[in-house]
């Protein structure tokens, strides 16, 4: 599976179960990346999408994802097990956090294959980095 996640400057992902931030331009970008593949996420994450027809909403999505699927992870612990690629959106801001992305990508054999910056709707600069084994 492929993991999509958002982090702040401190690798934070969420605070007290809530996402740190959101941006509609980032969501559009995410749907572009996923294309015709399956996109799985929790019911909490799905609330921010207007059209959920192409989304598989499953609160146990990390255990039910197959090879080639994309999983959008906001407030779940992430490991590198069974992960083909990480799509990491960086807010380039500091937010409060108590859940962090702690995978040591280099040690786990991932290498950066792409980096892209774009302007969001409410964020001046969002950076997308793609890591693959």
């Amino acid at each position: 599976m492929n993991i999509i996640l958002c982090i702040d400057k401190n690798n934070g992902m969420a605070f007290m179960g809530k996402r740190q931030s959101m941006d509609c331009v980032l969501r559009e970008k995410m749907l572009e990346i996923v294309g015709a593949s399956r996109l799985l996420m929790s019911s909490y994450s799905a609330k921010q999408f207007e059209n959920t027809e192409s989304i598989v909403i499953d609160d146990d999505f990390l255990n039910n994802a197959n090879q080639g699927d994309f999983c959008f992870v906001e407030n779940n612990e992430i490991s590198s097990e069974n992960v083909e690629s990480f799509y990491i959106f960086n807010w380039n801001r500091k937010y409060p956090a108590d859940l962090f992305f702690s995978v040591d990508l280099k040690a786990e054999g991932f290498r950066k294959i792409k980096k892209e910056e774009f302007k969001g709707n409410s964020h001046d600069k969002i950076t997308l980095e793609i890591y693959s084994r």
């Binding site: 931030s21 959101m22 500091k94 937010y95």
Partner: peptide, 18 residues
């Protein structure tokens, strides 16, 4: 200022903007 309060201000400001 920068490690305690600012992250919360950022979160609120960006939520309102969005």
């Amino acid at each position: 200022n920068t490690e305690g309060m600012l992250p919360f201000e950022n979160m609120v400001a960006d939520y309102i903007k969005e």
